[in-house]
């Protein structure tokens, strides 16, 4: 972080009116929420309790939703809360339960290549932060004026300019749904009595499949 701090200091010296040393309220809020988000993400990838990892992921994703709100992208913030916090984390918790993840501390949560992973992540972080700070240290987002991501704006551009990708995405979601059903249904030879083809709840992975 020392080259990043040095470049930030020089950027504060070169930026004429908005420096890093006189942050606005939005910047302070963004920084604090960003620290919480990053800390929750680090705990998510380092904790040894598997269910706690999913719950800290909720904190990280919720913090990102607050960051979207600070960037005036309201609609994406609420979509983030609905889809990520509402459904993806619940799916992950279901997956942890269905694979009989141990409650409490599991000593083998990390694999043997943990030092290599740490080295790769630290090198990538140093390189990315250096490049990003060097490129954008004098760039300022102007947040005045109307919100750029309100539901009005987003709906308008989505159904005026992005209709074809939107419809293609619905086809992809249908394909993913069918794929998940096919992958998680039991073989017909395993239980001939249960008649799985008429079961309406077979898209949810059933706990009977684990026995």
């Amino acid at each position: 972080m020392s080259p990043a701090a040095a470049t930030a200091a020089t950027a504060a010296a070169t930026a004429e009116s908005h420096g890093f040393l006189s942050p606005t309220g939005v910047e302070i809020a963004f920084l604090l929420v960003g620290l919480v988000t990053l800390g929750a993400a680090v705990i998510t990838v380092t904790t040894r309790q598997l269910v706690h990892a999913a719950l800290w992921l909720v904190v990280a994703l919720g913090g990102l939703a607050v960051e979207y709100l600070l960037l005036t992208a309201e609609f994406i913030a609420w979509v983030q809360v609905l889809i990520y916090v509402g459904s993806v984390v619940v799916l992950l918790l279901f997956g942890l339960m269905l694979t009989k993840a141990p409650i409490g501390r599991s000593p083998d949560a990390d694999s043997r290549n943990r030092p290599v992973a740490l080295a790769v992540a630290l090198l990538a972080a140093a390189a990315l932060v250096w490049v990003v700070v060097d490129a954008f240290r004098t760039t300022v987002i102007d947040l005045d004026g109307a919100a750029q991501g309100s539901t009005d704006v987003t709906g308008s551009i989505l159904f005026r300019h992005w209709v074809l990708p939107f419809e293609a995405l619905s086809v992809l979601l249908l394909a993913a749904l069918i794929g998940a059903i096919v992958l998680s249904r039991k073989k017909a030879a395993e239980d001939t009595t249960a008649s799985p083809a008429t079961d309406p709840h077979e898209d949810a992975p059933t706990p009977e499949g684990d026995r």
Binding site: L31, G34, T37, A117, A121, L128, V132, T139, V140, D142
Partner: peptide, 27 residues
């Protein structure tokens, strides 16, 4: 009201690297 672009960019870079560590290190 303004916001330096470096803040979200650096946060995104760090989050991405945390994700890289998790993908490589988790079992």
């Amino acid at each position: 009201m303004h916001l330096h672009l470096a803040y979200p960019a650096v946060l995104a870079a760090l989050l991405f690297c945390v994700g890289v560590y998790g993908v490589l290190a988790r079992r």
